[in-house]
Design a protein around this nucleic acid. Structure first.
Length: 938
RNA sequence: GCCGAAGUGGCGGAAUUGGUAGACGCGCUGGUCUCAAACACCAGUGGGCUUAACACCUGUACGAGUUCGACUCUCGUCUUCGGUACCA
């Protein structure tokens, strides 16, 4: 008989909600602890078993910290603006707000069933006007700020104006345009990732492999006026401050790569017979004597002036080609070298040589100056370009012997400079210093640091996002007054772009600032609201401020932040950026949002595939083959003869039958009977499959192919936590998700081990109960024995250490060991069990509350005190020493811990068994490690 | 290509500063209980050798090395997963 988890869990979930057990106070004498989960986007698919993994971990820590006497802030909310709800709205006409509300209700219901200790009074939703009012407010602050390089922080734009020459004499439009070059939120013409299918631009990190991350649509480059945030101003600080936060090395490394700092020099090349100059950025100015050509990006503005008449046609054609080559193509054939000679030449600033000027799409317009100096001998890309177009290759750094510079470039930043005039003979490191100072002395350029990081495009041509609080007056953008916020998202008749290609907001009727001025029509990107939500949780109801000073100063920053690693270069970079910005303005007391970050591993799904026939002939019925049939060596098996028969009957010709192909298609895993067998009848009840002909294995089973993939609705492999809560209870789900393995590791979901965890909870329950049905609560008040005390203290120590190391899988094992040992001792003593219930309460709170109440406590176990362990009570007087000979363990020997190493040695050597292994020889050496091991070298 | 993480039984995974490899759980085998099943309980379970036991050999991706002693440290090789991709 299983313990009554159903009743218990319902009872305590209600109790916690009614009593507001987990309410956090903004004023407290207790130390604070802020445990934050990345809030979810409430998708229509509901919560799957991957979501709670991190939530359970942070919940364990939160409950543990409460027991340790902390005032814990553990909130939850919803990142509720975003594309899927809008796509759904376009399809169905249903307002995204409605969809979002419904989805949130479902998420909430699912989360409530798992027994999280969230303070629900602090819930935030980014799509709520009371919330996005402050997102807009921060945008206005960004607009009104610039980054002062001298103070190295953001300041009000007012401090910039006195530094600008002749500013007051400029026209309004000119003033606006000038300041736009400085504002941290600014409007500019920018090359963007335009996704025609989604009808919007995407940020760099929303594009994966040249297609949109959501939906997988092609992305092309387009020049458009765009609102952007000047995150690049913070590049250095975003990089340097990584040193001081306890985040995983892999996340820090991806941020470092994303920021991509490189040091080098700018260098100007004069164009021959022209006033034009071309500035390049290079990290290897030491190779300047190896330059044999220059390459410009196809987007370069200089092209029109540079290109000679006879090359104009070819250049135009190339530019056209390069522009229309989608990002995807560019990326998929990186190896393909393309380019075009402009006909123009540049003058080498040191040697005066004439260098041909080329364009090539391996040069990116957005990085550096959009121009590179070609040093084919020491840069593999330049090398490939030079080889392809037959340009000379000139070696200027010594390479290892037998290195054929014509065949392969020598890119390493080491060796002696050769053929290099004034830096001849210098090591690269020294040559760099010397040549940069020479470049600076001659006024050709200067030492420079370049970042890969680009400014973040902030506008989206979409409906379901925060309106940007900007209006246009005489073509000049103005931000709204703070007291006019929020700028509420207007109603529209359709969620599609207008016929003229304007964003959906252009459909809003009479939507004008003060009834006169056009509002900005783009909305903010998905990451806007999530860039500061951790602050709003501190004071979510505040009507006057984004959060009150007292709350901000009390909670400060997040102590533990848990979420997916996929946000490494998106959200996690933006939230750091906004934090630093708000700090610069004196609005918050911290420069980093989270001290500690843990990336929980992804819980993958097991997709199921079956083979489907595809034929050109429409008359052909669709056949489905069991997994193994296609892999049989003898394809002419009985089944295949039948397959052909069917096709013949449908009127297919021999050739058409030959052309029939089979492809694996995903089917919903709810159609499976067990691990790899399909319930054919169930699948046939679905309309897409009802006319299919299914071919089974000889034994009558229809097998599917299982493959581990990301768990997602579109892959039909989602497992929700609900069934487990119903069948085994939330406590089992919580323990099981932790027991699966280390938190940070990705793993496919399988329920094979769940009975073990469930069995443990029942066993634990039985420690407190007697009778046939284990329904009589019986506890003894006897004094505990020494072994019982030892078990208790060992467990306290282990659980505490494991929680502090976020090693939850091993704590679950420790609980199991503890229950096994106490069961063995038939221990039902209050003095042992009571503290263990407290330990367990962070992991399995419902059963713990119930037992706690039965133990006679009136208050929730949340307010109990975490027991302390005493090392002295855990140790025995003796230790069972493993005795090894030449490092090989041979036998064990129980020895008193009071013995000195010399005494141990004597005892061991005197032992009968030792004599056998010594074979009469004298031991060369005896190593005794007290309380560890004895090793005898023979 | 580059960066990061990781390779341990049939499976998920344990193993303090280098100190009994395989904890705990699943699965499997045998048994007790039961009319039967479920639950529960007991015993066993890396591989090899041996009729069997005692014992022995071998074993943490592979190959070397350091050490009294290596899953753990060093060097090299291979594989898998994740991130990233012409950033000059």
């Amino acid at each position: 008989m299983a313990y009554p988890f159903g009743e218990i869990e319902k009872k305590w979930q209600k109790h916690w909600a009614d009593k507001k057990t987990f309410r956090a106070e903004n004023k407290s004498v207790k130390p604070k602890y802020y445990a934050l989960d990345m809030f979810p986007y409430p998708s229509g698919a509901g919560l799957h078993v991957g979501h709670p993994l991190g939530y359970i971990a942070s919940d364990i820590v939160s409950r543990y910290k409460r027991l340790k006497g902390f005032n814990v802030l553990h909130p939850m909310g919803y990142d509720s603006f975003g594309l899927p709800a809008e796509q759904y709205a376009i399809q169905t006409g249903q307002h995204p707000e409605k969809t979002t509300k419904d989805n949130i209700a479902r998420y909430r219901e699912q989360m409530d069933k798992i027994g999280f200790s969230f303070d629900w009074e602090r819930e935030v939703r980014t799509s709520d006007p009371n919330y996005y009012k402050w997102t807009q407010w921060i945008f206005i602050k960004l607009f009104n700020s610039w980054y002062n390089p001298e103070t190295d922080k953001a300041e009000s734009i007012d401090t910039l104006i006195p530094k600008l020459k002749n500013f007051s004499s400029l026209s309004e439009k000119e003033k606006s345009d000038t300041l736009m070059n400085y504002r941290l939120a600014y409007l500019s013409e920018a090359w963007v990732n335009w996704c025609p299918q989604l009808g919007t631009v995407l940020a760099n990190e929303e594009v994966k492999d040249g297609v949109s991350e959501r939906g997988g649509y092609p992305v092309e480059r387009k020049l458009m006026p765009q609102w952007s945030l000047r995150i690049t101003a913070y590049a250095n600080r975003l990089l340097n401050d990584l040193e001081n936060i306890d985040w995983s090395e892999s996340i820090k490394e991806s941020q470092r790569n994303w920021i991509g700092k490189s040091e080098g020099s700018s260098l100007k090349f004069q164009v021959a017979d022209s006033k034009l100059g071309i500035e390049v950025f290079t990290t290897r100015p030491d190779t300047v004597f190896g330059v044999t050509f220059l390459t410009l990006a196809p987007e370069s503005e200089l092209l029109s002036e540079l290109t000679t008449a006879e090359n104009k046609k070819a250049v135009d054609e190339y530019v056209h080609y390069a522009k229309n080559r989608s990002e995807r193509e560019r990326q998929s054939d990186v190896k393909k070298v393309t380019g075009q000679f402009t006909g123009a030449y540049a003058i080498h600033p040191f040697t005066g040589e004439k260098l041909p000027i080329w364009i090539g799409d391996y040069v990116l317009a957005g990085y550096g100056t959009g121009a590179v100096m070609g040093v084919p001998a020491h840069d593999s890309r330049d090398h490939a370009f030079a080889k392809h177009f037959g340009l000379p290759i000139k070696q200027v750094v010594e390479a290892p012997k037998d290195w054929d510079i014509q065949k392969e470039s020598f890119d390493a930043k080491e060796g002696k400079c050769i053929n290099s005039d004034l830096i001849n003979g210098l090591e690269v490191k020294d040559a760099l210093k010397k040549i940069i100072s020479e470049i600076e002395k001659r006024g050709l350029g200067k030492g420079k640091t370049q970042f890969r990081l680009r400014d973040a495009i902030f506008g989206r041509q979409r409906y379901w996002g925060e309106p940007i609080p900007v209006y246009y007056k005489d073509g000049i953008p103005h931000v709204m007054e703070e007291n006019e916020l929020p700028l509420v998202l207007p109603e529209v008749d359709k969620y599609l772009p207008t016929e003229d290609g304007e964003p959906p907001l252009a459909r809003a009727k009479n939507w004008k600032h003060q009834g006169k001025y056009e509002y900005e029509k783009t909305t903010m990107p998905g990451w806007a609201g999530s860039s500061w939500y951790y602050l709003r949780y501190m004071d979510p109801q505040n009507k006057n401020e984004f959060a009150g000073k007292d709350a901000l100063n009390y909670w400060k920053d997040v102590d533990l932040y848990i979420g997916g690693a996929e946000h490494a270069t998106g959200h996690l970079l933006y939230v750091r950026f906004w934090t630093k910005f708000l700090f610069d303005l004196g609005l918050i007391p911290v420069i980093e949002p989270a001290k500690k970050l843990i990336n929980q591993g992804m819980i993958q799904g097991m997709s199921a595939f079956i083979y489907q026939s595809i034929s050109e002939n429409k008359l052909a019925p669709t056949l489905y083959l069991s997994n193994e049939l296609l892999h049989k060596d003898d394809v002419r098996s009985d089944s295949f003869e039948k397959v052909e028969e069917i096709f013949v009957k449908s009127g297919l010709s021999n050739q058409e039958i030959k052309d029939v192909k089979y492809r694996p298609i995903r089917i919903d895993i709810s159609n499976l009977k067990n691990e790899n067998e399909l319930d054919v009848e169930k699948l046939k009840s679905k309309k897409d499959f009802k006319d299919g002909v299914f071919f089974k294995e000889e034994d009558g089973r229809f097998l599917v192919l299982r493959e581990v993939e990301k768990m997602s609705k579109s892959k039909y492999n989602v497992v929700t936590p609900d069934d487990i809560c119903t069948n085994f209870g939330a406590d089992t789900l919580r323990l099981y998700e932790m027991f699966l393995g280390p938190l940070e590791q990705s793993k496919p979901w399988n329920t094979n081990g769940i009975s073990g965890v469930f069995g443990f909870l029942n066993k634990f329950w039985r420690l407190f109960h007697k009778g046939e049905e284990f329904d009589q609560f019986v506890i003894s008040n006897d004094e505990p024995t020494k072994p019982e005390i030892k078990i208790l203290h060992k467990t306290i120590k282990k659980i505490q250490q494991d929680i502090e190391n976020y090693s939850f899988n091993t704590s679950v094992s420790a609980f199991m060991i503890c229950a096994n040992e106490l069961t063995e001792l038939k221990c039902n003593k209050r003095s042992i069990l009571e503290p263990i219930v407290i330990l367990l309460s962070s992991f399995a709170p419902h059963i713990a509350e119930e037992l706690w109440e039965k133990l006679g406590h009136k208050e929730s176990i949340t307010f109990a005190k975490f027991p302390e362990f005493n090392e002295a009570l855990m140790t025995d007087d003796s230790y069972d020493y493993p005795i090894s000979f030449n490092g090989k363990m041979r036998f064990n020997m129980e020895l008193s811990l009071s013995l000195t190493p010399a005494e141990i040695e004597k005892e061991v050597l005197a032992n009968e068994q030792s004599k056998k292994f010594l074979e009469g020889k004298q031991p060369k050496k005896v190593i005794v490690v007290p309380k560890r091991i004895v090793n005898i070298v023979v």
